[in-house]
Design a protein around this nucleic acid. Structure first.
Lengths: 245, 245
DNA sequence: ACCATGCTTCCAACTGGATTGAATTCCGCC
DNA sequence: GGCGGAATTCAATCCAGTTGGAAGCATGGT
């Protein structure tokens, strides 16, 4: 991540070559920046949502609570991600945003999208594609939650994480830093912290993974792909139908 | 549904007033039409996806299977819906489409989107908003699957269905036609047909619903909204930031 | 060095929903 | 009106994951 090219540009130009003008348009989105401590709540579900955020560094996640306290983490955000995109369709934020660790975010007003849609059909197509691709990913998560066992869900989550991280870090091997607590993982996968613990231990015994501090090594990626019928939705998008500039 | 205004136009102009030109653009999407028998498989996951479909009448659903046969229904389609939208981002269809009953669909090539993005910023914004709104809905489903009991999930599903149907049928009261089998409902909610049966019976005993043939009356909508902390994502979209024509 | 705090692991009892198979009802169709 | 296949219901049993509590481990702050 050099200082001249932002995470966002890195991520987006992975899919399609962007004109100078489009790069400039994106760069303005990352002008401002704010930092937050670990565990900080950036905004709450129900707040009026005027801003989107680009993640510069650090992990964060969006979640919703049921009135009785049950919690569902809905999306884990990494550097280069756009946070709050789905809420653009509505007047109020539907989820709460919390940082996992110390984080740097670049807020930009949702009205910036207006300009993009008016001036750059190509960037519009890319934004639309990303929104649609994220739907496919949510559908994959849904499938995992609806029909998979605990071990399958954990495997799916790890495969998904590593696929996403590989886009912005092409040098990545089989080891990821996993700064989330087991309770957070449980809230993401619809399980309990106790059972996540048990499942991790079993997977380590069975040689699927190896853990050391908060680093996690995936030892049998192929077996896990087979187990979960995993498809990488990040590597290949179809940009063939995009309007040319 | 008069012959001059399509379901799609009805649905979309619920959110924003469309110019003549935009209406015409949408109308061309519904030029062709094909009918399918109940239970027919229209396309399969993995197929190359060149077409999208607008539903003219009848219900259908999209689903994925795991290799061992477990099934997850991912989305239920009603008249006016655009089918296959998420797959636009990818080269191949990620789900299989099956009809619930006799259905009439209007196929149109995904390259039609190119024209919309180039020529109508407003329609582009609307398509983007719908994609994003659908993400929010998927997130709601995810929350239900991850953290809700069987009865809560069934309640959520019924509330979601009736909210969606009310958009195109403003005259709707508290009774809906539910042509899906209990096995299909189970595959949608991540449960089993047996437990769906039991849950329906309990909910009828407890006075939440009343069933008669395949018609279902919602007796205590408020209680069910409270139970599931339900939010209608269909009634209010934020169109304030849209580009004007 | 010490405590405070938050995370992970362990244990044992419990339960919501799964599973299986058989019985029944429903419904379209000849 | 009666037949056949699908959908639903019923009953018995089982199990993956929950619950709550307590014990171990890190980590950092003072």
């Amino acid at each position: 991540m050099s200082s001249t090219s932002s995470c966002l540009v890195t991520k987006l130009s992975h899919y399609v070559s962007l004109s100078q003008a489009d790069c400039a348009r994106l760069a303005t989105l990352e002008k401002a920046e704010r930092t937050f401590d670990a565990g900080h709540e950036v905004y709450q579900g129900g707040d009026e949502n005027k801003d989107l955020y680009v993640v510069k560094h650090g992990w964060a996640f969006s979640y919703t609570d049921l009135p009785d306290g049950r919690r569902q983490i809905v999306k884990i955000h990494h550097p280069g991600d756009i946070i709050g995109f789905p809420d653009v369709a509505l007047k109020h934020a539907t989820t709460t945003l919390r940082t996992v660790e110390d984080v740097c975010l670049c807020p930009f007003p949702k009205s910036s999208l207006d300009e993009i849609l008016r001036e750059s059909p190509k960037l519009s197509a890319l934004l639309l594609s990303i929104a649609l691709r994220d739907q496919v990913v949510l559908i994959d998560v849904l499938r995992a939650m609806g029909r998979m066992s605990a071990q399958e869900r954990v495997s799916y989550m790890l495969l998904d994480l590593i696929s996403r991280l590989r886009i912005t870090n092409p040098g990545m091997t089989d080891t990821i830093r996993l700064p989330m607590t087991q309770s957070q993982i449980a809230d993401y996968l619809g399980l309990t912290n106790v059972y996540i613990s048990k499942t991790f231990i079993r997977m380590e015994e069975d040689g699927y993974i190896h853990r050391d501090q908060n680093r996690l090594q995936i030892l049998r990626e192929d077996a896990m792909i087979e187990l979960t019928d995993f498809h990488d939705r990040y590597a290949d998008m179809d940009t063939s139908w995009f309007p040319q500039d």
